[in-house]
Design a protein around this nucleic acid. Structure first.
Lengths: 118, 118
DNA sequence: ACAACATATGCCGGTCACCTATATATATAG
DNA sequence: CTATATATATAGGTGACCGGCATATGTTGT
């Protein structure tokens, strides 16, 4: 259980589970949709991450089912995962806000904005 | 030059350079301040990242100076770094918004009475 | 009939960002 | 004279992620 910041594939995984439980392959498609096609999660990343998140208690196996002859495991966000996701989004929002503030407060070549930290 | 998403230490590094140029050790302190003491960047991470970002053209060495007998290298955000940071924050904002939307739109496991708070 | 693709799960080997620890050197505080 | 702060840098190890592969069924196209 490391409190290191989540990497983005993991963050997207938890995000994809935030509204309702999904199975592995469905998560790949959902993440593809969330990121507007920019992130195509690989199965190696997915199932490795699912194992890890299960072990960390951030997600759990909701149920197993068979649809059209294909076996599925449906994963759900655990309470720990929900609070982790909430904390992570809160933290990221702060970082994003700070980055944007600094880009706007950029030290101009001629003019000096006041009130900046030393 | 990978278009893989920046990890957070790297994001904080670019953020710390967004308003004005700074030297290595100053970046550690600045990142400590930005993150309210939550991220204590190690020198191994810092100088490795600086080398990598220099090679990627995201930052550049603004100047070298000697203050109180100690040599410094002052790094500045290059144009490529500035646009990368802008794109990254934009993307992260979208992910954060989506995560929060989904947490709010959560399909509850069991319906609660309307008067009860979660 | 057969090829190609989508659905679906899972493992293996490699890369690389990050971390821990260490080394070096000067200035200041106790 | 020892510890702490400032300042840069490297070495070694860990682990998340990625590319590729394997397996199996259902669907669509030719």
């Amino acid at each position: 259980m490391s409190d290191r910041p989540l990497q983005e594939p993991t963050l997207l995984l938890l995000t994809a589970l935030a509204d309702e439980p999904r199975h592995g392959y469905g998560l790949i498609q959902e993440i593809d949709a969330i990121s507007q096609g920019r992130v195509r999660m690989r199965t190696g990343t997915l199932y490795g991450a699912l194992d890890r998140l299960l072990q960390q208690g951030l997600i759990r196996v909701e149920r197993e089912e068979v649809v059209d002859g294909r076996a599925r495991k449906v994963y759900a966000l655990a309470e720990a995962g929900r609070s982790t996701l909430a904390a992570e989004t809160e933290r990221l929002r702060a970082v994003v806000a700070e980055a944007e503030r600094r880009m706007a407060a950029r030290r101009a070549p001629a003019a000096r904005p006041k009130g900046a930290l030393a």
